[in-house]
């Protein structure tokens, strides 16, 4: 097969919000829906300064472990109205958030099962291409221990950068904290996909 050259990536630049900010896009489910959770965090640069011009995108399976996509051939059930995509532009304090449901487990390669996770794209001014990471959950100890992707990472501190921490002081809905460090001591683990 002769291959065509791919189109190169370029930065979203400082004015991404013109196209990428729209009302309600952080809500994959309504706040008052059953099983709603909130994931929130801050994007930091290499000096620990919050990044106010980033956009975080998530892609995830529903609570049954089913992606709304024809290539998910599992028998798990779709949920009407749950697309699995969310987008959050950081505010002036570098904060982003999502209100969603915790995904179920989906298949990994071979006979493996993955722990509940979200796939994440990070784009910002000063980033020429998106970085990709994953969000796992601190209260999924057992399934995290079996996850083939997490198990590629030996260093405990590095693994922790991929795990959203359950906030024991959560209000009406369960809250998780997940910070993204683009560079530095607590640098998030990014994936080459």
């Amino acid at each position: 097969m002769s291959k065509m050259g791919v189109t190169a990536s370029q930065t979203v630049g400082p004015f991404l919000s013109i196209a990428m900010r729209s009302e309600g896009q952080e809500y994959l489910v309504p706040r008052n829906s059953k099983n709603a959770i909130k994931i929130q965090g801050i994007v930091y640069d290499g000096e620990g300064t919050p990044v106010p011009d980033a956009v975080i995108e998530i892609w995830q399976a529903n609570i049954n472990g089913k992606y709304d996509h024809p290539e998910d051939t599992s028998d798990n059930e779709l949920i009407e109205g749950f697309s699995g995509f969310g987008r959050s532009c950081t505010n002036n304090e570098g904060q982003f958030f999502f209100v969603t449901q915790k995904p179920g487990r989906v298949n990994g390669r071979g006979n493996s099962l993955q722990a509940p996770h979200l796939a994440v794209n990070i784009l910002a001014r000063g980033m020429l291409k998106q970085q990709v990471t994953r969000i796992y959950f601190s209260d999924e100890v057992q399934s995290n221990a079996e996850d083939p992707v997490l198990n590629q990472i030996d260093d405990e501190l590095e693994r922790k950068t991929l795990i959203a921490n359950f906030n024991p002081n959560s209000g009406l809905i369960d809250e998780y904290e997940f910070h993204i460090c683009l560079q530095g001591e607590n640098e998030t683990i990014f994936f080459d996909v």
Binding site: E47, V51, G126, L182, Q183, I189, F190
Partner: peptide, 10 residues
Amino acid sequence: TLRHPKNRAI
């Protein structure tokens, strides 16, 4: 300069 990871992507 401050917005690129220094670790290698996995």
